[in-house]
Design a protein around this nucleic acid. Sequence first.
DNA 1: TGACTTAAGTAGGCAAAATTACAAAAGTCA
DNA 2: TGACTTTTGTAATTTTGCCTACTTAAGTCA
Lengths: 373, 373
Amino acid sequence: MPRVSGVAATSGEILRLIREEELRTRAELARFTGLSRPVIGQRVNELLEAGLVLESPGVSSGGRPAARLEFNGAGGTVLVASLGHTHGHLAVCDLAGTILHQEPVGVDGGPDAGIGAVLDLWRDMERGPVLGVGIAVPGAAAEHEAIVSAVADRYPVPVHLDNDVNVMALGEHRLRHDVDDLLFVKASTGIGAGIVSGGRLQRGAYGSAGEIGHIPVPDGLLCGCGTVGCVETLAGGAALLAQLGGRAANLPELAAFARAGDLEAVAVLREAGRRIGEVIAAAVNVLNPALVVLGGDLSGKNLIAGVRETVYQRAAAVATRRLRIEPSLLGDDAGLLGCATMILDHILSPRAVDAALRSASRPAAPQDPTRVP
Amino acid sequence: MPRVSGVAATSGEILRLIREEELRTRAELARFTGLSRPVIGQRVNELLEAGLVLESPGVSSGGRPAARLEFNGAGGTVLVASLGHTHGHLAVCDLAGTILHQEPVGVDGGPDAGIGAVLDLWRDMERGPVLGVGIAVPGAAAEHEAIVSAVADRYPVPVHLDNDVNVMALGEHRLRHDVDDLLFVKASTGIGAGIVSGGRLQRGAYGSAGEIGHIPVPDGLLCGCGTVGCVETLAGGAALLAQLGGRAANLPELAAFARAGDLEAVAVLREAGRRIGEVIAAAVNVLNPALVVLGGDLSGKNLIAGVRETVYQRAAAVATRRLRIEPSLLGDDAGLLGCATMILDHILSPRAVDAALRSASRPAAPQDPTRVP
DNA sequence: TGACTTAAGTAGGCAAAATTACAAAAGTCA
DNA sequence: TGACTTTTGTAATTTTGCCTACTTAAGTCA
């Protein structure tokens, strides 16, 4: 029987089929891949022995019931951190990306200064073998190489670090696996976007793709970035708090006002949505995504209504005809869940799984940690 | 000896190494891949027999001189067409992407109506075995599926069709293979862009990525697309001809005026560059390319000066610090060369080459034509 | 001319990967 | 209970891919 997929059917690939293609029995795997049953059996056994897959009794369809295979989320853990300028959140997640335990952390002096505190907290949070580490930082990932080194020194596993918005885009993409072109927009103190195009996160040539906060709009004011007219000066968190005359001390409070029906807060958020919508419209014209996802402290029905209003008006018809604009499904843990997705995507990739299985069967050549600049 | 690359060293991959990695002898290939000489020898022989590689005497470095291997551009041909609304250009290219012969074609009624004429002309232009067909059309590629069918009926080879701007972006990317993030902007009657991100052409979810001609700018007028304020209404070819009060009948004439130093034409183009620069700035902020390439009838030093002026002023500093803005290297044949790149990228990919070699050695199972929607 | 160097082809063989063929397990249904 | 179905496991075999070892080729340099 001929092979169906052109891809080599390594154990790692079999795991991917179980995780992503929803293939649940050895027989299904054999039919799908075109490989003979004995080969599939051997591969699955490797995965079972490595604890990456679990077997459970299945139901019969007239003959011997097929054993149900499923990915074993409990086969290991990853440590994740979503760091801000003054505080952050840490978590341990299982291999399914579920948060097992989470804690806040103070990082006075920024992520780089606070990495010691992060490492200390993580040590107490461990819930099993740590197979990887994922970290989100505000701003440019390239400027935080020191964090990666510090973490890699303690944990001899893959350590990935990226921009918070990129990470959230990955997390959102995981939840909507059918959408290969999406734009995740975070509206909070800053305004930024993470881009998934053709199923892959796009960082641009120098890592600053998605910097939509500094696209000029009419009436924009002088921005810290040196340009005049950035959206962030009109619709960023600081501007909105100022527009409310200090009635709200921070963005969650502002959002709470709006949810409670405070008309001024509602109006401010809606207008901010319109402004952000202008730059999203530009991004939509350029990228033609299938979906725009809105997240961040400011995201809510008012902001989204404003965004929709402008985008559907301003972006080209071809780009908006089938465009959806929706709130994030990740919620408050967007950063942590995104980090988990980022590192799990790597750890559970066919390549990485095959490498891990190889080094597990042999006298264990130590795997060197991989870094993402 | 351990394998260097993790990639299977099939004949197709060996051809890629010869074409792209500049490996020129069997010994170099063996060293680079980590494979033994006999294996390399066998693979190279396959390629030699298939006529995809040529061997020539080399110079000695103290011992037996290594035979120089090079890709055989003359091993086959591809047919290409760059079609417009009223006329187009056809060509036969060799496998190196060199145009062997080219002819204009009238396609009254648009590309779809004119495909018969195209096929007739192609028949007379053939210069050897046709291994693939590449076609560029204005506007949305998805609306020209009929063309692909008509061509595939006559030529049982891969037929690829795409938007003219996308095709040009591919062609430009081929010439600058080190740049994995580039934005090709065509300024002519319409204004559009082709996006290469992470080394891959990005079409967006529904094929309309790069539609920067319809991003609104201040002072924009009512556009045929239904929106108010599109750049195209201010800086598209029609607007510029109108601004010159009919002194130039078409865009090449307008460009000639500017080259001759006509102050009005120069000013019109420079101002158009500024306007186009505004939307390019938005795209640059979103995509963070390493390079913006300007092509199309309007592209010239005046337009580019205007673009540079605005982009470096309007786009965020992080995105412009290392940004280059340059004219296209493709010249008048941009569309044809881009088509050749598009189809050759496919035909000469390791996968396709391996498949071709397989079916050549066995009783020839006919390969079905691949289409790109 | 002959020693030395580098490149390339040939023959034989080994080991991994996958297949076929056979066997067993675990259910359904009459 | 026993015939039938479907899944899974085991053993032997074949195929594939690649390597080592040896030979030949084709040059340089003393």
